[in-house]
Design a protein around this nucleic acid. Structure first.
Lengths: 176, 176
DNA sequence: AATTTATGTCAACAGTGCTGACATAAATTG
DNA sequence: CAATTTATGTCAGCACTGTTGACATAAATT
């Protein structure tokens, strides 16, 4: 048994539900949804000896080809070392190439290779299928509502970043 | 330089957008939304020397007080060892207590202590605030659409499990 | 010429998944 | 009752991905 300092802590036998108006349903739905959403690409990645971090790098290099290392760090909000590890592997394995920056030769522009593009699409396909299935029967209004919700879950300072990604409707954040 | 097997892999300079009808917008929205959604509790947990895994255990023990270790494993879909590590720490620190199962004395029913309940609510609060903010101006229809979407993102076999959590509207999955 | 910036790299550590093996106590079965 | 199965705990070790801090180089800027 674990050491007890004073009185025995009594077990609470009632479930938390909507205490203080806390939204437990959506909290746990976010957890379950994200877990299963990532499970398909995770399986594919494992075959290549890659992980989720490789997926993210591949994804954004394909979405923003030519972005620099610093820009990628800013999108992912991870440290240089976390990125360096996976980026090196992706470059060595021929999924991504670096091109010296044209203006600033210190910069390394990152581009996918055909192989990198192919893998990215293969990873996106099951996720997109899952999304389509989840949107089955939903109208344009409902889809818009879901996109609005997800975007509003992101930290406000970072929402502009999302708008700069190709094919995204710029922020109808609060009016404007 | 990395070894190159044959021809130099040419960098692809065009962004992936809606290739093959793939839904990149929602794919990356899910990533950004979940990342920021977990950031607030992560910060609090760090003060306690806990991580995200502790949060999940605390959450479900509070949502389903008295559930057994096996049931918790089934909800989280992790291995015994992954759970054991964090559960032991939560018990030793007095956030969770084990009670011998009444019918089956091999089972350990898990309950939050008052301390555990308090921490769980503190972790849920910022997440719930974020959700409320994201739903600002949304009607009941829109909220329902979002819940439907998130639930449909979960693997079908597991959706029933979600319905058993307190305060959740049982599955209008496809008819029924 | 000196400083700053963009990138790369090394070492070390933490959290949380995983596998496989083994131990114990309690329940179930033949 | 004896044998088996089940629920749980625990040990060792590994992988992935995040962290910090330090240091090196080349190129741009001041």
């Amino acid at each position: 048994m674990a050491q007890r300092s004073g009185a025995t802590a009594q077990p609470i036998r009632t479930a938390v539900t909507a205490d203080e108006g806390i939204d437990f349903s959506i909290i746990e739905l976010m957890y379950f949804a994200y877990r299963d959403f990532t499970s398909d690409p995770d399986q594919i990645l494992a075959e290549y000896g890659f992980g989720r971090a490789h997926h993210r790098v591949l994804h954004f290099v394909n979405r923003l080809p030519g972005l620099t290392v610093a820009e990628l760090l800013d999108v992912l909000k991870i440290t240089k070392q976390s990125l360096a590890r996976v980026l090196k592997q992706l470059i060595d394995a021929g999924y991504i190439v670096q091109v010296q920056g044209p203006r600033d030769r210190r910069q390394r522009e990152l581009y996918p290779t055909p192989k990198g593009r192919t893998l990215t699409l293969a990873l996106a396909r099951p996720q997109s299928r899952r999304i389509h299935a989840a949107l089955e029967g939903a109208g344009e209004t409902e889809r818009a509502g879901i996109e609005r919700f997800l975007k509003a879950m992101v930290n406000p300072e970072l929402r502009a970043q999302i708008d700069h990604l190709p094919g995204n409707t710029p922020g109808k954040d609060h009016g404007e």
